[in-house]
Simulated assay, not measured.
Amino acid sequence: MPAPIRVDFYFSPASPYAYLASTQMMQLQVETGCRVDWHPLWGRALVNAAGYNPSQAAAVSGQFRPEYRSTDLARWARLYNVPFRNHADVVIPDPQRLAIACVAAKRFDAGQVFARALMKAIFVEGRTPADEALCLSIANDTAGIEPHLFQPKMDDPETAALLDASVQAAVAAGCFGVPSFVVHHPDGGSEMVFGNDRLPLLKQAVRAARDAGA
Rank of each mutant, 00 (worst) to 15 (best):
I138Q: 08
C135L: 08
L79M: 13
P54S: 10
Y68T: 11
A58M: 13
I145M: 10
A139Y: 02
L73C: 04
S137R: 14
M119S: 01
Q96T: 11
K153A: 15
R116Y: 09
D109M: 12
R75P: 05
E146M: 12
Y80C: 14
P83F: 00
S137D: 13
R107Y: 02
L98G: 04
Q96E: 07
E125T: 12
A88I: 06
K106V: 02
A105F: 01
K106F: 00
V60C: 12
A99F: 02
P93A: 07
R65Q: 11
R116P: 03
R97L: 14
S137L: 13
A105N: 09
A130S: 04
N140V: 10
Q56I: 15
A139I: 09
A139E: 03
N81C: 07
V60D: 06
E67C: 07
F84E: 05
P93N: 04
I122W: 00
P54D: 08
R97H: 04
S70V: 12
R78Q: 14
V113Y: 03
A57Q: 14
Q151D: 05
S55C: 11
A99T: 08
A57E: 14
D141P: 07
S70H: 11
A99C: 10
S55A: 15
P152R: 11
A101F: 00
A105I: 10
V124Q: 06
Y52S: 13
A130T: 03
D89S: 14
D131I: 03
A105H: 04
I145T: 05
F150P: 07
D89H: 14
H148F: 06
V124T: 09
R75E: 11
A101N: 04
T128D: 00
R116D: 15
E132R: 15
I100T: 14
E125L: 13
D94E: 12
R127T: 12
V60W: 05
G51T: 05
R116F: 10
P152M: 11
V124L: 06
I122R: 01
D72E: 10
G62V: 10
A117W: 02
G126T: 05
Y68R: 12
S61H: 10
A121R: 07
D89A: 15
I122G: 01
E125Q: 13
R107P: 03
D131K: 05
F64A: 11
G144V: 08
A99L: 06
E132V: 15
Y68D: 06
A77E: 08
S137Y: 03
W76L: 15
V91H: 01
P66R: 11
L73P: 01
L118H: 08
L136M: 14
A57K: 12
G144E: 06
A101V: 05
R107V: 07
